[in-house]
Simulated assay, not measured.
Amino acid sequence: MSRSYEQACHIARALDVLGQRWTLLIVRELAFGPRRYGELLDALPGMGTSLLAARLKHLEHSGVLRRVMVTGSRHAAAYELKDRGAALMPLLASLADYGGRMGSPPDGFTDRAAWKVLAMCLTASEDGADFGTVTELALGGETLWLQGDGERVRLGIGAAPVKPDVRLTCAKKVLYALAKAQVLVDDAVAAGDLVVEGDLGKARVFFELFRLPNDASEAI
């Protein structure tokens, strides 16, 4: 049984659902689309299996997510956000923007490119939703794809479901520098740090639309 603040306050009632540790990070992972239990556990290092099960049950009961069946190598159960969960994307965007301005994290913190790309998508302007170019990112062992559908930016983990219009290959640090405008696309390509397969102009537009906060405390 989850604890409640027992306050008739909108903020307190929201925190009754979302205020427990790990809860919003589960929502973060489901922003990529349906995820199997094992995928969620792998994406949340430090979270035990029993705690994950409890948090998923709580969020399902609260109407934030639901269990679905997905196809792949085998038919298996997964979790996806319901409308009430998808409505949390502006909240995640605000948290991403706030966290991005806190400076570099301490050494040893787990770092995944997917989390940065999600932040880039969440904090993009409305023009990002109109970026219909299927873009695949190969980032040092992580592969992601995204495409604007006119209403939002669809983001997924793994290869794009169709042949991408543009494929960008680089190290995570190069992606971060490009997304903070610390390095220009043409310069990264000339240096061999970024490989662009497809329209170079679309790659430039991508990094104009999808950015990361550039904290003044970080060295450029």
Rank of each mutant, 00 (worst) to 15 (best):
G72Y: 07
G103E: 04
G99Q: 01
V70T: 11
A87S: 01
A76C: 11
E39H: 00
M89S: 10
G108Y: 00
L88C: 03
G108R: 01
A87K: 04
V64T: 03
L88M: 05
G63F: 12
A87G: 00
A43H: 01
D97T: 08
D42V: 05
P45N: 13
P90Q: 10
L41G: 00
M102Y: 10
M69I: 04
M69V: 08
F109R: 06
P105Q: 11
G99H: 07
E60C: 13
S73T: 13
R84M: 13
A54S: 14
G72R: 03
M89N: 11
H61E: 14
L41E: 07
Y79C: 06
G72L: 09
A87W: 03
P106I: 01
L91D: 11
G63W: 13
M47N: 02
K57N: 14
T71C: 14
L52R: 05
E39K: 05
R55I: 15
L44R: 15
H58Q: 14
A96H: 05
P34C: 05
K57V: 10
R84D: 15
G108I: 11
G33N: 09
G63R: 13
A43V: 04
L44N: 09
P105H: 11
G99S: 14
A78T: 12
A96C: 12
H75G: 09
L95T: 11
A31P: 01
E29I: 02
E29C: 11
A43K: 01
R74Y: 13
M69C: 06
R36K: 14
F32G: 09
E29N: 14
A43R: 06
L91G: 14
S50H: 12
L92N: 01
A93K: 03
L92I: 08
P90S: 09
G99C: 15
L95W: 02
L95D: 06
S104H: 10
H58T: 09
K82H: 09
A86W: 14
D107Q: 12
H61N: 14
